[in-house]
């Protein structure tokens, strides 16, 4: 297997990431997977006894968000699959990428870099961040936006 994995959360911040993944899929002809990861860490604010019920609701919300991304891809002539996983973002993303032997991981540009907070996330740190993902997943990391794009 091979393909492009694009992790999305939904919302306006995900749009450039979705678009970048669609363009890459069109250029390469590789299968495109949109991935939504259910993370329930926020439940630490409240009872953890509702995890199963809430996880189910979050999965359904994730499916809906993926449906919108798949629709966008379809309009541009790309058939994409939607996948929902549960866990920590980094671990779940790497696990799925290894599972399908992904060629590319399309990620959104970290907010700190987009907002020009160079002291919070330097180009070197960003490169290390990408390298860490690449080594763990075996896929090449592509950031969706400038200035993160400069790193590659």
């Amino acid at each position: 297997m091979s393909g492009i994995v694009c992790a999305i959360r939904g919302g306006p911040e995900s749009r450039p990431t979705i678009q970048k993944a669609i363009e890459l899929a069109k250029e390469s002809g590789l299968p495109l997977y949109f991935l939504y990861i259910v993370n329930l860490d926020f439940l630490s604010y409240t009872s953890s006894s509702r995890i199963q019920v809430i996880a189910q609701e979050m999965r359904q919300m994730g499916e809906f968000i993926l449906l919108m991304a798949q629709e966008e891809a379809r309009e541009q002539g790309v058939e994409a699959r939607g996948v929902v996983r549960q866990g920590k973002l980094r671990e779940a993303l790497i696990e799925f990428a290894r599972e399908i032997e992904a060629d590319y991981l399309v990620l959104g540009c970290p907010k700190a870099v987009k907002r020009g907070k160079a002291n919070a996330f330097t180009p070197e740190m960003l490169a290390d961040f990408a390298r860490g993902f690449e080594e763990a997943s075996g896929a090449r990391v592509i950031f969706s936006e400038e200035p993160c794009g400069d790193v590659q």
């Binding site: 999305i8 995900s14 259910v38 993370n39 604010y45 409240t46 919300m61």
Partner: peptide, 16 residues
């Protein structure tokens, strides 16, 4: 309120 925090938690995971 705890309800505010859980709402924000889910909204954040939907990209908002």
């Amino acid at each position: 309120a705890s309800a505010n925090l859980v709402t924000a938690g889910i909204a954040e995971r939907a990209g908002y």
